[in-house]
């Protein structure tokens, strides 16, 4: 087959130009937030004492953690979807949330007596947490994988895992408004497990679906 013949065919297929990848991400994120919100309000809703909780540092820190995770993951994911984009340079953004969490856990262990650590870690809602975050995050993950399919990830598995982190961070942001376990010990354990499940699912699905 002559390459010149192929180029003639490709050249004739110039119109219409596909949706720019940046636009695809805007669309995916713009849909993921309302989808996650809708599922959250249908299955859980915010906790009744949310107004009082807003004045406590532990409650607010949950959102700092989940938003840092979602933001860092989305920044890396955006770059992983385009060949030659500097994803590696953005990779340290993924460390922000775990470092914040490590500091919060250290602080919690400093101010709470050792005898109470286990109670706080186990909390009251671990099963709800483990189930809800993946359920709320499933829609956003599907949207992010669809955006990856539209793009050209040279590492589909890795990109899918980061898509799972982004979806998990977004889902956990909503879930945090419901959950009454505010200790960083609880969040570091159960949120992390639930988000890791989404990352694993994202990696498996993307390896199959985001190949090109």
């Amino acid at each position: 087959m002559r390459t010149d013949d192929l180029i003639k065919a490709l050249g004739a297929d110039a119109k219409p130009a596909p949706l720019p990848q940046r636009g695809a991400w805007r669309l995916a994120i713009g849909l993921a937030v309302p989808v996650a919100a809708a599922v959250f309000f249908v299955i859980l809703g915010p906790r009744p004492d949310i107004a009082a909780a807003m004045h406590t540092a532990r409650f607010l820190f949950k959102f700092v953690f989940t938003l840092a995770l979602a933001g860092g993951a989305l920044a890396v994911l955006y770059r992983l979807s385009m060949p030659g984009a500097p994803a590696r340079r953005a990779a340290p953004l993924l460390l922000v949330a775990p470092l914040l969490m490590a500091a919060a856990v250290a602080l919690e262990m400093a101010v709470v007596p050792a005898g109470d650590w286990t109670t706080r870690l186990v909390g009251h809602n671990m099963l709800v947490c483990l189930a809800s975050i993946p359920i709320i995050g499933a829609g956003p993950l599907a949207l992010f994988v669809a955006a990856l399919r539209h793009g050209a990830p040279t590492r589909p598995g890795l990109a899918g895992a980061v898509a799972g982190l982004a979806a998990g961070g977004l889902a956990a942001t909503f879930y945090a408004a419901h959950c009454t376990d505010d200790s960083p010990l609880f969040v570091a354990t159960w949120y992390t497990l639930a988000i890791a499940a989404l990352a694993l699912a994202g990696a498996v699905v993307s390896r199959r679906l985001a190949r090109w």
């Binding site: 949706l19 385009m82 030659g84």
Partner: peptide, 18 residues
């Protein structure tokens, strides 16, 4: 030829400022 087809089908992943 694989690369040209991929360039074509994924041309929207080039960022005009890159």
């Amino acid at each position: 030829q694989d690369t040209l087809l991929a360039i074509h089908l994924k041309r929207h992943t080039w960022r005009p400022d890159a």
